[in-house]
Amino acid sequence: MSHVALASPPPAGPPLSGDALVSLRGIGKSFNNGTVALSGLNLDIHDGEFLSLLGPSGCGKSTVLRLIAKLAAPSGGTIDMRGDAELGFVFQEPTLMPWSSVFNNVYLPLRVRGVSRAEAKPRVEEALEQVGLSAFAHSYPRELSGGMKMRVSIARALVMRPALLLMDEPFAALDEITRTRLNDDLIRLQAKLRSTIVFVTHSVYESVYLSSRIVVMAARPGRVVADITIDEPQPRGEDFRLCAFYAERCRETSAALSAAMGANDVRLD
């Protein structure tokens, strides 16, 4: 049912698969202060995947997202993206413009591309409906709860109908109840939109629940140490959390994560 593979050592990376949406080869990234964030990282992202990047803090998982989004340039290696795939980015914080209404926040990506307000209106309304915030188009961010702000942030990413949605620990700052609801909503959305999602998290349970594939990373330098497939059809629901298969995958993923941390002699007491 599942498949666990330890990634091959960096220099002899897996061959480039032609059907990947994004393909990272031998990626290295070091910062000006000498920190090596990533070294020899190989990763293929396929269409329709829900890929979680899981790892301890400092393993460079957020850096991978920034590199894919071209918000940073790699120090070495190549990133190939098929065509000019539209990207969406969701940050850990909602990152809304507090001076703009919910509508204008979601309208922003289209506005930047020169789409008129009248033309954009149905698309903005559709995006707001997808996250269940149709009634709040004219509210301002500070009038919303943390979970609702995050929904606006997701709607803003969806309004461009992205082929690839990059999410950087989007629910980490939310309470457990809100996070569970947003997890379920995200599963439902992906099943409907069939978009590819790369999701950065440090929660084993969240990643197993959401993902079709989990890539476990280790730190210093950041690299891929395990690639786990979760063979359970989407959409998943509450009963998935209760089944033995889920528990088994969580155990497996935890073990891979522990191994990744052990590689750095990090001990959790």
């Binding site: 989004a69 918000l71 990207l87 980015f89 990152t95 413009m97 922003l108 990506p109 930047v112 461009m160």
Partner: peptide, 14 residues
């Protein structure tokens, strides 16, 4: 200005 928002503007090539 919020540096994440600056990133967002860059992402959409504003």
């Amino acid at each position: 200005a919020d540096h994440n928002l600056v990133d967002l503007f860059e992402l959409y090539r504003a």
